[in-house]
Design a protein around this nucleic acid. Structure first.
Length: 581
RNA sequence: GCCAAUGUAGCUCAGUGGAAGAGCAGCUCACUCGUAAUGAGCAGGUCAGGGGUUCGAGUCCCCUCAUUGGCUCCA
């Protein structure tokens, strides 16, 4: 058996985990006295959590990588050792490996305690590994980061080194190219390049300013969103951005959510808070008068802007911000109606995602946690209706037992983008808590008061996050219906400027977002600019076009498409729009 | 918030204690252009902010702010 075949027998996890060991050995050589925690393989690589006493920085990665290369070249075997629990403890204590000692205690009684030694580094580890270090053919160290021991912020912070490894150099190169592609599509980069938005332009971290083009795209998204909501039986609300302390006390936010809320402001000697959620206001609308079962289900939607405190270190472009607009809605209904309502929300959500070009959707059902409010029967019933609804619409679903909020079970939808990355966006949550807190009731057929069910839901999640995802999904090249500038008319010279403007006016009259490039540039330069701006269509016009009332069409997708009249071009656009482009 | 790193012109970046630079973008002029960059010129800076070391700091040290990669958390 040659080495190539041998490699193919190991799965990626084994290769990556082995690479993590080699990295640990290298760090042990370069930074004597390091204590080690764990070094698992991950979905796209591996890491090792170590404590060098703060000696490690990004600049050390090349040295560590070189040392790893040396160890690989020397083809050290991975040697298996078994120890008794007491031997193991003694061995690790002698080495001063305090984290390993604690990890040893996690291993259940009666299970074998195994070690692997390679290149002078002996690690408490269940394996498996490759036979010898020479079998790691392609790896790369990527970054250094901090990481709390056991993921708990009360614990000391360890140094985590991320790397990745593959079967061969070709696969590694492909992965590096994938990272590069993701970097190119980064919505923060595109947002700047295409002049769509800015973050913290003097406003403050995590606060977004939408520039004209970004605002236009958002407007188009919102218009579509409203339109679809009307069609799906929703009514729209507008509610304030702040509310008085009593409201947040009743809702429970001051007790359970205050870490995410901003300090109050005083108005006429009353405390007011910026809203972190919209629901208490929607409930105010509900409670503004008596409600009858005949009105239910109520479906109330709002593009509601909320403000939440997020730790400075977690802010990230548009994807994690401190002020954002949820595409929120609350469904208030009878227990009998709820399953059907959930199904409708799922259907609606799927059609919404498809409209924006996302096909791959997965559902995640989160069930009752140990600490929860509400009747056990209600939880069981709610869970059942969520499961039934997911099944009815045919979504693939994973169950996260105990993952729900204390006030109710939920379904989250995750969508996959063009690069295969998953994003959490839609959420559908039961709430057994808030109808109780606000004493929401409706009069039933029996003339008595009943407690309605309430479901929170967001489809796109927040417009900020959604816009970021959309931008990365399309790499900045918005489909025709979303493009802020759909068509640009390029006169080949100054003499054709007035004809170009006439064409633009005709397009605008037909509701096409069109502009003229009136710059003193060559045609080549104008095309280049328009392409860099990811414009779907360019219309080149010169003497020949003007004389025959034509335009020379150039599309983002196909390049030169030949000449036609403005009307013919408009017809083409209409067909493309119908096809969802 | 914590760990690590970064911050130089609108953007991308060079500048290793001794005179603040380049390309692109911008402006002006010339050219009036036919499918991915016409040419020349001009302007553009409290080197994130503050403090310190030094004869001298973009460069070294400290603090603050912001950003980036993670941890925790999350729409």
């Amino acid at each position: 058996m040659n080495e190539g075949e041998c490699m193919a027998n190991y799965d990626l996890t084994t290769i990556r985990h082995s690479a993590a060991h080699i990295m640990a050995a290298a760090i042990n050589n370069l930074f004597p006295g390091t204590t080690f925690d764990i070094g698992p393989a991950t979905e796209d690589g591996f890491y090792y959590d170590v404590d060098t006493g703060g000696r490690l920085g990004e600049n050390d990665l090349p040295r560590i990588q070189e040392e790893m290369q040396r160890i690989i070249k020397e083809q050290h075997p991975f040697q298996y050792k078994e120890m008794s629990r007491e031997q193991a403890r003694q061995f690790l204590e002698e080495q001063g490996q305090k984290y390993k000692v604690e990890r040893l205690e996690d291993i259940p009684e009666g299970q074998k305690i195994t070690f692997y030694e390679t290149a002078g580094f002996t690690d408490l580890c269940g394996g498996p590994h490759v036979e010898h270090t020479g079998q790691i053919k392609a790896f790369r160290l990527l970054s250094v980061a901090g990481s709390y021991y056991r993921g708990d912020e009360r614990n000391p912070m360890l140094e985590r080194i991320y790397g990745t490894a593959f079967h061969d150099k070709k696969a590694l190169k492909k992965y590096i190219q994938h990272l590069e592609e993701a970097r190119k599509r980064d919505h923060r980069r595109l947002g700047k390049e295409l002049d769509l938005f800015s973050v913290n332009s003097g406003a403050g971290p995590g606060l977004i300013c939408w520039h004209p083009k970004g605002a236009l795209v958002r407007h188009i998204i919102e218009s579509y969103w409203r339109d679809q909501h009307y069609k799906n039986g929703y009514e729209l609300l507008y509610t304030p951005h702040l509310g008085q302390a009593d409201l947040w006390k009743t809702s429970g936010h001051l007790d359970f959510y205050s870490d995410s809320m901003y300090a109050p402001m005083q108005i006429d000697e009353q405390d007011y808070y910026m809203k972190p959620m919209n629901c208490p206001f929607h409930i105010q609308v509900y409670k503004s008068r008596n409600r009858s079962y005949r009105e239910l289900p109520l479906r109330w939607a709002e593009l509601g802007t909320v403000y939440r405190y997020e730790k400075s270190g977690v802010l990230h472009g548009l994807l994690r911000v401190r002020g954002f607009t949820q595409d929120d809605a609350h469904i208030i209904c009878t227990p009998e109606q709820v399953e059907d309502e959930i199904r409708k929300v799922l259907d609606f959500s799927i059609s919404m995602w498809q409209a924006f070009g996302f096909q791959d959707i997965k559902a995640y059902l989160a069930t009752q946690p140990s600490k929860a409010v509400g009747e056990a029967d209600a939880w069981t019933e709610a869970r059942q209706s969520l499961e039934n609804a997911v099944e009815a619409v045919g979504l693939q679903c994973e169950v996260e037992e105990g993952g729900g909020a204390f006030y109710g079970p939920k379904i989250d939808l995750k969508i996959q983008d063009a690069l295969g990355r998953e994003w959490q966006t839609s959420t559908i949550q039961f709430d057994f808590n808030i109808p109780e807190r606000f004493d929401m009731t409706y009069v039933g057929t029996d003339g008595n008061k009943h407690r309605p069910y309430m479901v929170h839901r967001a489809l796109l999640g927040s417009l900020e996050r959604f816009f970021g995802i959309l931008l990365e999904h399309y790499a900045g090249a918005f489909p025709l219906w979303l493009a802020p500038e759909q068509v640009r008319v390029l006169p080949v010279g100054e003499n054709y400027l007035s004809y170009a403007r006439q064409v633009k006016d005709e397009l605008r009259a037909a509701d096409v977002r069109a502009d003229v490039d009136a710059d003193d540039d060559t045609v080549g330069a104008k095309i280049r600019k328009a392409r860099n701006a990811r414009l779907p269509y360019m219309l080149v016009v010169g003497a020949e076009e003007e004389e025959n009332a034509l335009v020379a069409v150039r599309s983002r997708k196909h390049g030169e498409e030949g000449k036609c009249s403005v009307n013919e071009f408009l017809q083409q656009l209409e067909e493309k729009a119908k096809a969802g482009e």
